[in-house]
């Protein structure tokens, strides 16, 4: 995203000259991705043919993303929009889609992609009630943290690119094949790293590492949040601490946004190790790509779960 150094001046000029402003024709396909992970997939497959904007920043809590002017502008000009789906981005995507009024990327249009479509969901609620907290009717939405879902998500992105730009299909497919091979190699690497993790327990702050746990056969004993999206209560923390001690759980995994006081309290009371891992890529140099992010997650978890 381009940022402006003199926003007030830009805005005043914009107010005066808005009638003259237009959409500059772009040679490259304009793609908006909701999170940096998806932007990375688009870059890997689209290469020089695409220009990608990510709405969320790599360090952001996806429940607290603030839509900004550049997002609205990018959405209004996009040829392709890529989201995870399953209500992960519900706090900002519906408003942006409605206000952007871009028919090319409306749900159901060729330029609309939900990468979670077709991936076996976790935690699909039996009963839809806010008693269960901020649950997602379509199941756990954090598919981007499933180390086995890379090829699936990349395939959804490929399909979207081909739909909106069929003339470049051969180029996209060639890049996809190369990327898929790298993904396959990475998945084998992560699987090897996780040998010996099976059955181990951990606690997470938010219910966002379920797919990772399923892939690595880890057991998530509980969450610091009392329910998804609901901050911890003292009673809940007391019960969680007792459970962790009873089961010998020594690892708490958290995203950067949730590494907070409640989490530190539980770590202190249980002696557990806090493992901070990215929940989307782009938050640091090491996690600049999706593969890099998964490398980092496996390395940090491995350090805590398989100490030398």
């Amino acid at each position: 995203m381009v940022s402006t150094g003199r926003p007030a001046m830009t805005l005043l000029l914009a107010l005066l000259l808005s009638g003259l402003a237009g959409t500059a024709p772009a040679e490259r396909l304009r793609v908006v991705a909701t999170i940096p992970d998806l932007a990375d997939f688009v870059r890997e497959i689209g290469g020089e043919r695409v220009e990608v904007t990510s709405i969320a920043r790599g360090t952001e809590n996806l429940h607290a993303v603030v839509a900004r002017p550049s997002h609205l502008v990018a959405m209004s000009r996009a040829d392709l929009f890529v989201q995870v789906g399953r209500s992960l981005e519900v706090s900002f995507v519906p408003g942006l889609l409605e206000n952007a009024r871009n028919e090319r990327i409306r749900p159901g249009a060729p330029g609309f992609v939900s990468v979670a479509d077709g991936w076996e969901p976790l935690d699909v609620p039996v009963e839809l009630s806010r008693k269960a907290g901020d649950i997602h009717p379509q199941g756990n939405p954090h598919v981007n943290l499933d180390p086995r879902a890379g090829t699936h998500m990349a395939t959804r992105v490929l399909e979207g690119l081909v739909r909106v730009d069929p003339g470049s299909e051969a180029a996209y497919r060639a890049r996809f094949e190369a990327y898929a091979a790298r993904l396959k190699a990475a998945e084998e690497r992560w699987k090897a790293q996780a040998e010996g993790w099976r059955g181990k327990t951990l606690v997470s702050y938010h219910q966002e590492f379920g797919y990772l746990a399923r892939a690595r056969e880890l057991e998530i004993l509980g969450t610091i949040e009392s329910r998804p999206g609901i901050p911890a209560t003292p009673n809940h923390l007391t019960e969680l601490i007792a459970l962790m001690k009873q089961r010998g759980c020594t690892v708490i995994v958290t995203a950067p946004w949730s590494n907070n006081r409640d989490l530190k309290l539980v770590a202190e009371k249980t002696g557990a190790t806090v493992v901070e891992v990215p929940n989307q890529c782009g938050g640091s140099e090491a996690s600049a790509s999706w593969i890099g992010m998964m490398d980092l997650i496996h390395a940090r978890l491995g350090k805590a779960l398989s100490p030398p």
Partner: peptide, 11 residues
Amino acid sequence: HWLPAGDTAAV
């Protein structure tokens, strides 16, 4: 009615 004004502003 709204319209983009550059890449990072809208009116």
